[in-house]
Nucleic acid binder design. Structure first.
Lengths: 349, 349
DNA sequence: AAAATGAACGTTAGCGTTAACGTTATTTGA
DNA sequence: TCAAATAACGTTAACGCTAACGTTCATTTT
């Protein structure tokens, strides 16, 4: 004597309410559970009935309610991801690696960007937790204390990606940005450069930029006893930042090599040099970072550092999936860096 | 005589189960409903008790279960978004515009990329529908019939963005790509060009590229009676595509102007010309699209078409929110295009 | 002073699904 | 041939939350 659920709406002057499992069951003359089993592909229904049920479900345009499912099984197949920004290739590459991995494992990813704000990250984490995600991914290591508390208190696996530390919240996959700065410094020193400079953005919370600068600075302090000039112009985009930062540095001091936060900025720098009639690498060395797509068409090969971003995404996702499935995993996994010598720095002296 | 829910786990050798509303209620000596009301900020609790409850909830690190909430109220504050790709500035710009708008209205967005596959779009739409989202956004107009059926059958508002049509699934905000192609064609014709070519990617389902090419083709057919050469190399990225496509076209015919799917490809083309010793615009005209960041640092201003992508995102999101709130909205809203004459095409003759 | 009001709570009944356990036919084994 | 095993179902009770309606008790109104 149960009433059919879809009748609850009294009269339906608009689009009618979507079918639920109950409606499919009624129409197929089976119990709700048989429909549930048929839909999920678990056994407990005969092949004949399963086909029949699936046919009817399709006919009725039945779409399972994930909220009800997640509530019943007390978890979801969502992976929550926090990125600083969608701009640029870097995070898009990492993201693609992760997504491909999650997709093929049946997980969906929900993404938010924080624009480099730990407060925004915290509010995202709060929202995420309310969805009972299977896992959470944060970019970098710079979090609000409450973010860390919340995540530690929850049973949900957490991956910190892009940066590297031995003491992650849970697990960590990334590169050592300080080491990257050192690599660039070592290379520059080996080529005989003496007056380095660094261009990045004025973002308060891009600790990767700070770490790379620190690595570079330490090498030059040790090997040459020189300071690293630094510019952080507030420009609209990476290309402009590189251009403006270079102009600023060329006005302020007389660097013989400028290192940039990424290849796009380095390109902006190259354009600035070209405009001022400076030749690269004769008058000035230029070093990028990340080996971005742009570099593939430049007539002069850019000196840069290769970061395996896609691989990082895949590795991170794989590690997180392992954690989710209870497989023991390494706390922290650093990815290799490779300095790519190019023609925007002078040849070995 | 109700048992405390958190005790259900028998013994808790790991992190204990997260607190639920019931636990907070017990600890605060009030009913579940008072906690619910306090958390949601609706009235029905005294200020004194509300503060007390919120304090306790925070102490217990209580996080509401969104699945249960969505199930109970039969909707969510999710907006599902489908994009072709995260690569490139275009969709990142649109996305940023949309996200900002949704965020400030209290909605979260869940995003998926289809890599230009309508099949992938369909499976995403299916998954989306199961989450009872408040709205759905698709990029472009090229969908599987079943996608359209599903969305038409559901009561959920749908926005199609980036492209333009008078017969959207529900509502539509974008630009007319055919018109954009015509604009480029008109400009090229007015500058006296006679042998146009077009470079894009080999993606089967980027109908925008096809529409722009069609617009360009029709103008040249009408005004000059000439064909448009076309190259669609399978390269790794936009820059390389532009480079390779240009090489291909220069080998095949003798175009006097090449139009590209976007500025990045145009830059690849410029680099190809530079390498071959061709001077732009004397030997060849170059036209980009979208006015991307890169263009801001190029020494020679690129002829391109400005698209208001961020505005498009904001407009689209605003329209969709209006639909969600039952406010009457226009079916379809085209955004303006502006041709930006530059120095990579010859001056008016 | 009795009645009417309203704020501040609590109770009940779902929301749509699944896990766990029943029940009924059908097959199998000795 | 009959108990035992198995396949194919159905029933019941959650999952954590909220809408709708009850209840209580201090105010206000007449």
């Amino acid at each position: 004597m149960q009433k059919i659920a879809s009748e609850r709406s009294g009269f339906m002057n608009k689009k009618h309410h979507p079918a639920k499992i109950e409606d499919v069951a009624a129409r197929a003359n089976v119990s709700i559970m048989s429909v549930s089993r048929a839909i999920r592909g678990v056994d407990g229904v005969s092949e004949k009935k399963r086909r029949e049920i699936l046919r009817i479900a399709r006919e009725m345009k039945y779409v399972p309610n994930s909220n009800a499912r997640s509530l019943a099984v007390a978890n979801s197949n969502l992976i929550g991801i926090s990125l600083p920004t969608f701009a640029g290739e870097v995070f898009a590459d990492i993201l693609n690696g992760m997504r491909r991995t999650f997709d093929s494992a049946g997980y969906s990813s929900v993404i938010d960007t924080t624009e480099y704000s730990p407060e925004a990250e915290l509010s995202w984490v709060r929202r995420l937790l309310s969805w009972q995600p299977a896992g959470i991914i944060l970019t970098g290591l710079d979090h609000q204390p409450e973010t860390v508390d919340l995540l530690r208190a929850s049973p949900i696996p957490v991956l910190e990606i892009w940066d590297h530390t031995d003491t992650p919240i849970d697990i960590c996959v990334g590169i050592d940005h300080y080491r990257a700065g050192q690599m660039i410094g070592d290379h520059a020193v080996s080529l005989g450069y003496r007056r380095p400079a660094f261009v990045s953005t004025p973002r308060g919370h891009d600790t990767r930029a700070d770490n790379r600068l620190a690595g570079l600075r330490d090498v030059f302090a040790r090997e040459r006893g020189t300071e690293v000039l630094s510019a952080r112009p507030q420009s609209g985009n990476s290309f402009a930042t590189g251009f403006d930062g270079t102009a600023e540095l060329l006005g302020a001091g007389a660097p013989d090599i400028i290192c940039y936060l990424n290849d796009h900025m380095a390109f902006g720098g190259l354009m600035c040099c070209q405009m001022r009639g400076l030749s690269v690498p004769q008058d000035l060395g230029i070093v990028g970072f990340n080996q971005l797509d742009l570099a593939s068409v430049l007539p002069r090969k850019l000196t840069t550092v290769r970061t395996l971003r896609r691989l990082m995404g895949i590795t991170g996702a794989t590690q997180l999936l392992a954690r989710i499935n209870g497989v023991p995993t390494e706390k922290s996994k650093p990815l290799p860096l490779e300095l790519i010598p190019g023609e925007t720095t002078r040849a070995q002296i």
